[in-house]
Design a protein around this nucleic acid. Structure first.
Length: 831
DNA sequence: AGCACGCCGACT
DNA sequence: GTCGGCGTGCTC
């Protein structure tokens, strides 16, 4: 039996991933015409349920007909060749198993929405419509419109009929058999097209062209256009060039040339127009930079990393702030690309908008694809396709770039690997990009380089254990000194009456000096808004959110109180809502107040604030950076945004406010986070040898041990202490945590369900491994009460069976009648 | 996730 | 008596 016979006789079936939270794959029948051609990793369109039409992904092709049910047909095959590689499918299932979510949810974050099909419900006239007399006058009008336009979307129909709820109308018309509804499927991605102009083949011939020029003597406007064309496309000298033509816009740019003459030439058959698909990443052929020269320590680091990769698949590069890790990366990237493999360079969201990308782009040119969440969907699809086609061998991207269709990765760099933003929280999958990168690397035989000035405890632990290689860069690039960090005791300052608002006298003096020296300052306060809450002097009322258990932050610019959890906004009350008193005061301070106070102290200073509120627009962030870089700004006030990978030459002073709040945050990671954040912010100062940097930290508790570690840049000391704590209390990296959060409108129900969950689980896995239920720090968000149950398992335990049991238990609790309306969030390895 | 089928209250 | 509430279960 040859291949063809086989295909003709046996029906194929495809198990597909649906973009819907269902726990397994679904089997569809492959239509005859696609038999033998359907590829694993191709997208297909299928009907799911009675009405839904969705894009699904082929995960398996086989010939076993399902016994329990009749499989539906695949409606359409969207890709002839796989859009998703085998590795990716493997990654999808790993993520869905490890992070305990549905595989469809993984597919949903993985594919840019431009690769998903949108199905839109539309209505059309029923050709078999028999009883027009049943329609009201208004309905007749509407049906006529539908008939005239062939089809209308629900929205269009609603607009035409001018009704808010269109469903009643549709239902009525369907009942009278006047219309039918259908689903229209369309591909969202549209390639960017440029309309071009060229000579028709007859006139592309030099002889004919010469003759034409003669003929056009009497139509000067048309001749102008032809001559303009020949300036761009020398068709006389080189007829071959004509094929490529020139964009139509070439002519419209020039006011001297008339559009209508061009149209005439087109009509006469002298020119023809045609469309070409072009890249959205049209190369701004900017200056191509050469490979940077490495300092001696950097060279050594490259060697050490390369050497470590001989034995280990993962290497941690621990380099102090300003050590010049980027240059080390560049050389390793170049090496990997040289050897013909792909490279992925992951960066946290914020850092991606900065200088690094521009730099890498200049060095690696057209081989680089950039994958960023601020990009449009079409752009993301282009990067995806570029990786598939081999156009992009190197991708710089954020968290979700781990889902791109690589097939021969040689190196993955996870820069700032300690960053918590690598972990996605909402929606599921709650995956960690760094940890997933390690899995991808193992699949494809790639190496992973984790880089940070302040490695996560987990990563450093693995390095200490010998699981990862460890390479250190202990000096700053170009012999620049690490900044001198000083503490300012604000408790003492307050006693001595040296505080002016939130500024100590010492800080004000230093700020002033820096301003006089024309050097730049960064002020860090990890809290946006004007003040975190309002309070009434007479009755101790505090501004609180109606839906969440948090205070409302006052935003002065908009005169609003805002909830940072649910986005709720209200106007600033004039009098106390509780007692009517007018003595309402702001309490505490955020970046907005800091900026205002700073301006009062230094009226002449040019101050810029950088936080979520001021960087909403796509370009605002870049603009602020450019201004600061060019010395247009003296002082930059900001939240943790100012701590991420910014590299400015002229910053000599960094001021840190409210370090205490961070340090005293009740969470097992608060010490780690404080060390990382404060070290990173401090690291913005004195990055060039010529300008020593100073850091001032205002604190109530100068004796706190973590501050001493930060001052002395003592990562190892911090690590030694922290790892001991983690071991003593059984926290990661010694355990793995799964956090279950119940959510319900009723506090009682949320708590009872969490209790039930805990009880059931501890019976199975033992009391030691179950903690809670307990209220999280914020007990209520968006009107839902939350309760946490923490599961802690020893690292060496295989969690597969346990996770299965956890899922069953959750299922049991969710379906319990008395817990109706409960939802349970699973977070594996929460950060 | 959506959407159907299915069993109990306020309306012509 | 009916319209409609949303409560449970299925979707290849």
């Amino acid at each position: 039996m040859n291949q063809l016979d086989f295909q003709e006789e046996v029906t194929q079936f495809a198990d597909v991933i649906l973009p819907i939270p269902v726990p397994r794959l679904f089997t569809y029948r492959v239509p005859r015409e696609f038999a033998g051609q359907i590829q694993i990793g191709a997208r297909v369109i299928v009907q799911f349920g009675k009405t839904k039409i969705v894009t699904a992904l082929v995960a398996r092709v086989h010939t076993q007909p399902p016994k329990q049910y009749q499989a539906k047909y695949i409606l359409e095959v969207l890709d002839e060749t796989p859009l998703v590689t085998r590795w990716q499918l493997e990654l999808f299932s790993w993520i869905s198993e490890y992070y305990m979510c549905h595989i469809g949810e993984v597919m949903n974050v993985a594919l840019p929405s431009g690769l998903k099909i949108s199905s839109q419900s539309k209505v059309q006239y029923n050709p078999d419509f028999e009883h027009p007399d049943l329609l009201t006058a208004r309905e007749k009008e509407i049906v006529e419109e539908i008939k005239a336009k062939q089809s209308l979307t629900y929205d269009e129909l609603a607009r035409f009929a001018d009704v808010k709820n269109v469903y009643h109308l549709i239902k009525s018309l369907i009942g009278k058999r006047a219309i039918i509804v259908f689903e229209e499927v369309r591909e969202k991605y549209s390639p960017k097209v440029v309309r071009k102009i060229r000579l028709t083949s007859f006139y592309a011939d030099p002889e004919n062209l010469k003759a034409l020029i003669g003929q056009l003597e009497k139509s000067p406007k048309q001749l102008d256009i032809l001559l303009e064309y020949l300036r761009y496309v020398p068709a006389l000298r080189d007829p071959e060039k004509n094929t490529e033509g020139t964009p139509k816009s070439t002519f419209s740019r020039n006011d001297e040339l008339s559009d209508s003459s061009l149209e005439t030439l087109l009509k006469k058959g002298i020119f023809e127009s045609f469309d070409v698909v072009v890249s959205r990443f049209a190369e701004d052929t900017g200056t191509i930079a050469t490979m940077p020269t490495l300092s001696e320590p950097q060279q050594r680091a490259v060697q050490e990393v390369t050497q470590a990769f001989q034995e280990k698949d993962t290497v941690l590069l621990h380099g102090v702030t300003g050590a010049g890790k980027t240059e080390v990366y560049i050389h390793l990237i170049e090496q990997a690309l040289e050897s013909g493999s792909q490279v992925l360079y992951l960066l946290p969201e914020i850092a991606l908008t900065t200088q690094i990308v521009i730099r890498l782009k200049k060095i690696f040119g057209e081989r680089v694809g950039i994958y960023h969440s601020k990009f449009s969907d079409n752009e993301r699809v282009e990067v995806w396709k570029g990786v598939l086609s081999g156009r992009f061998q190197f991708v710089i991207g954020v968290r979700s770039a781990i889902f791109l269709p690589f097939d021969s990765l040689g190196l993955i760099i996870v820069d700032e690997e300690h960053e918590a933003s690598y972990k996605q929280y909402d929606p599921a999958p709650r995956y960690h990009a760094r940890d997933s990168a390690l899995v991808i690397a193992r699949m494809q035989g790639a190496k992973v380089l984790l880089g940070s000035a302040t490695p996560s405890i987990e990563s450093f632990y693995h390095a200490q254990q010998g699981r990862y290689g460890l390479v250190q860069l202990k000096e700053r690039f170009g012999n620049a000194a690490l900044p001198a960090i000083e503490l300012i005791d604000i408790r003492q300052a307050r006693k001595n009456r040296e505080m002016k608002g939130d500024f100590s006298g010492e800080l004000l003096r230093q700020l002033e000096q820096n301003l006089e020296k024309k050097e730049q300052t960064i002020l860090f306060q990890n809290r946006r808004g004007y003040s975190p809450y309002l309070t009434c002097d007479d009755c101790s009322w505090i501004s609180k959110c109606d839906n969440c258990d948090v205070s409302l932050t006052y935003h002065q610019r908009d005169g609003e109180l805002r909830c940072h959890y649910c986005g709720h906004k209200e106007h600033l009350p004039r009098t106390c809502p509780a007692c009517g008193s007018t003595k309402i005061r702001t309490q505490g301070f955020g970046t907005e107040k800091l900026e205002e106070d700073l301006q009062l102290h230094f009226p002449a200073a040019r101050i810029q604030r950088m936080d979520l509120d001021t960087t909403r627009s796509k370009t605002a962030f870049q603009q602020m950076i450019t201004d600061f870089e060019q010395g247009e700004t003296d002082m930059l006030v900001g939240t943790q945004m100012v701590s991420k990978g910014l590299d400015f030459d002229k910053v000599s002073l960094v001021a840190i406010f409210d370090a205490d709040r961070m340090i005293n945050f009740p969470d097992f990671r608060s010490t780690e986070r404080s060390f990382q954040l404060l070290t990173q912010v401090s690291g913005r100062a004195g990055r060039r040898k010529e300008r020593a940097g100073r850091v001032l930290i205002q604190t109530n508790n100068t004796q706190h041990p973590i501050l001493a570690k930060i001052i002395h840049n003592d990562y190892e000391g911090f690590y030694a202490e922290e790892i001991e704590e983690r071991q003593a209390y059984g926290y990661p990296p010694f355990t793995r945590i799964i956090r279950l959060t119940t959510r319900h409108l009723e506090q009682q129900t949320a708590q009872a369900a969490a209790q039930k969950l805990a009880t059931l689980l501890l019976q199975k896995v033992g009391t030691d491994r179950v903690k809670g239920p307990e209220s999280p720090l914020v007990e209520r968000i968006r009107n839902q009460f939350l309760f946490d149950v923490l599961l802690k398992f020893e690292r060496n335990l295989n969690l597969k069976a346990i996770k299965e049991f956890v899922k069953e238990t959750i299922e049991e609790v969710v379906t319990t009648k008395e817990f109706k309306g409960i939802s349970i969030v699973i977070d594996v390895d929460p950060v």
